[in-house]
Nucleic acid binder design. Structure first.
Length: 443
RNA sequence: GUGGGUGUGGCUCAGCUGGUUAGAGCACUGGGUUGUGGCCCCAGAGGUCAAGGGUUCGAGUCCCUUCACUCACCCCA
């Protein structure tokens, strides 16, 4: 019986992981510009952390967590999201004493026990961005700007950033009441799900995809008429700054977030190119969360981005798939050549070039085929003739040009020079992904 | 948890109302080129038709069960 990976948990093979790497490289580059610093957190936490952080009644906590007891009987949970852990670390290490706004980012797997479907897996990867220590709209703006910059740098096509304000514990209850009042007399027209939402969380009805519910929701009371002055001013500030930065966003008063901790600003990056799971990133402000998890009353804001979904969009948009680079393939024929070649490979690698080697004895024809398969830009041919004459043949795989180089101490250097010259003559390099998403000028 | 779809060489799929040696394309290996890749031509290897049970003279094809994958609902990234 063949052993297979378990449901909802996928292997990311090298042909895809190169794109993942590209996304992560971009993440490091873009987020560093905003002063976000990488934080690494454990995969396992005490179950209580998520119960308190995410909310006891959320779907995540109620039915989606991988929870089990360890050998000492303690209840542990594989993290279903990163925010709670990062808040925990922030509190545990007293990072709020640093005297500055602390900004973190993180990348890693999350776990939720759900039925897998397009863009949703049981082990999935998120990029997570969090900032603590200010309630000023300028921080909201910077966080959203970092998301925008990130997507722009990746040239992600067809993405819109939607924003909204959910109000705060002071003004949201009033809105809840208004929604309940509005939907109550229209209850018969609501779908079964929305009928129960009416009791549990009327906000969710706004999000319903059923035609009739959606139509009713269109005329429902608008959250922005219920925001208190503080929230109103705050949201106006965020929108104003975003406009100053020329970051295009769309106000979506119907947007609702799924986790309990969100207040005021919420936002989502939605793609037209995904399936039913169209959110690439989502986040918002969570001013009560640090306190909720035992820290001081410090505000925070952040977002999470779904790697699989991001990569999915990029793959669809990419004209040519990315490939792992190979600068040089060393093709050897015979024992003596192999011995010389493996040493040469080591020297080439010390220069920083990517170098592959012919491990298995093959005919030259087969070796050339291999060079092709390895995507090698150059092939160094070292056979019996070359060993006898103390020289090697260097072939440019693209132009088919070959030069002969002497086997002396300068050989590695000569090879590197040839490789670099070829680089310079390649006039324009096409970007890996085209874009309809406006690229903001960088560097 | 609920509903739909699909399981045939490594991959993508044909296989008509059950009929006897299960096919194609791509990929792979070898050859055409005795030391030069991509294109072309030729040849070869590779399948208990997801698994189990049933109907039948006969099942890849029909029925049942299980499993897997997939899409959608719920919810979320």
């Amino acid at each position: 019986m063949e052993i297979r990976s378990i449901r909802g948990m996928n292997d990311i093979l090298p042909e895809d992981s190169i794109l993942w790497k590209h996304v992560r490289d971009t993440m490091h580059r873009v987020l560093a510009r905003y002063g976000f610093r990488e934080i690494l957190i454990p995969v396992l936490e005490e179950t209580r952390l998520f119960q308190r952080g995410i909310g006891e009644t959320t779907d995540i906590v109620e039915k989606e967590m991988y929870t089990f007891e360890d050998r000492s009987g303690q209840s542990l949970t594989l993290r279903p999201e990163a925010t709670a852990s990062i808040v925990r670390a922030y509190v545990q290490h007293h990072l709020y004493t640093s005297g500055k706004v602390e900004k973190f980012y993180f990348w890693g797997p999350m776990f939720r026990y759900e039925r897998p479907q397009k863009g949703r897996y049981r082990q999935f990867y998120q990029i997570d961005v969090e900032a603590f220590g200010s309630n000023d709209p300028s921080l909201d703006t910077d966080v959203i700007a970092s998301l925008y910059d990130f997507l722009a740098a990746l040239r992600v096509p067809g993405v819109t950033i939607e924003i909204n304000s959910l109000g705060c514990p002071k003004c949201r209850p009033g809105y809840h009441q208004a929604l309940k009042a509005y939907f109550s007399d229209k209850q018969v027209k609501l779908c079964p799900d929305c009928k129960s939402r009416l009791v549990r969380n009327p906000l969710r009805i706004l999000d319903c995809k059923v035609e009739t519910c959606h139509a009713l929701a269109m005329n429902a009371p608008n959250i922005h008429e219920f925001l208190c002055d503080t929230c109103k001013t705050h949201f106006r500030g965020v929108r104003g700054y975003l406009e100053d930065l020329r970051i295009p966003t769309r106000l979506n008063p119907m947007m609702v977030r799924g986790l309990d901790y969100y207040v005021q600003t919420t936002f989502e990056a939605v793609s037209e190119n995904l399936g039913a799971q169209n959110a690439v990133a989502g986040g918002g402000r969570y001013d009560g969360l640090v306190r909720q998890l035992g820290g001081p009353d410090i505000p925070g804001i952040g977002y999470a981005m779904g790697m699989e979904r991001l990569v999915m969009i990029l793959k669809e948009a990419g004209e040519e798939p990315m490939e792992w680079p190979c600068d040089l393939f060393i093709a050897t024929l015979g024992k003596d050549a192999r011995r010389f070649g493996i040493t040469l490979a080591a020297k080439i690698r010390k220069t920083g070039k990517v170098c592959e080697f012919s491990y298995e004895p093959k005919s030259l024809k087969a070796l050339m085929k291999l060079a092709n398969r390895l995507n090698a830009r150059f092939t160094a041919i070292i056979g019996e003739d070359e060993m006898r004459e103390q020289k090697i043949v260097l072939r440019n795989m693209e132009t088919r040009e070959q030069v002969t180089l002497p086997m002396d101490d300068s050989l590695p250097e000569m090879i590197v020079v040839s490789l670099d010259n070829a680089d310079d003559s390649r006039s324009t390099q096409r970007p890996p992904f085209p874009s309809s998403f406006p690229e903001k000028s960088s560097r």
